[in-house]
Design a protein around this nucleic acid. Sequence first.
DNA 1: AATAAATGTAACATATACATTACATAATGC
DNA 2: GCATTATGTAATGTATATGTTACATTTATT
Lengths: 70, 70
Amino acid sequence: MKNNVKIARIQADLTQQQLAEKIGVTRQTISLIEKGKYNPTLKLCLDICYAVNKTLDELFWVERDHHEEN
Amino acid sequence: MKNNVKIARIQADLTQQQLAEKIGVTRQTISLIEKGKYNPTLKLCLDICYAVNKTLDELFWVERDHHEEN
DNA sequence: AATAAATGTAACATATACATTACATAATGC
DNA sequence: GCATTATGTAATGTATATGTTACATTTATT
């Protein structure tokens, strides 16, 4: 679950805490998503996009990798 | 949770059943997502994208609506 | 270096995505 | 009309996303 949330958050000059509050989620959730340790729901992905002014593709799109494990 | 899955699925000439099998999910899950009745995980969104050859933005992006009722 | 701020992460609880089974209705072909 | 296929949806179970609390580690500031 690689993504660009951390980069976008830093560009938006937000801490995990601030981003979490903007979205209404806990800091831990942001941390785990940035670390790729879990699989957020679409609604949460969209909320993150809105908070850092990016689209889904910019933050979460990954080409299919034929050798993907998982 | 409006999305364009149904349109893309039909364009790809797949039934809900066929799409579900391609992805490894049940037909019910596809049906509920198309009806906007729930909030799929990112992984499932990506699997749907791959199956119908669209990107996240094409299938799931929605501009923030200030009057969203969720 | 010491202190504070930011981040990682673990244990446990709760909500909900998704599976399973089942049945009903809608659409399509004979 | 009847049979078949596609779709909607309800009940119940399971897995996992997310919350809560708490503490450890890393990074920034002085």
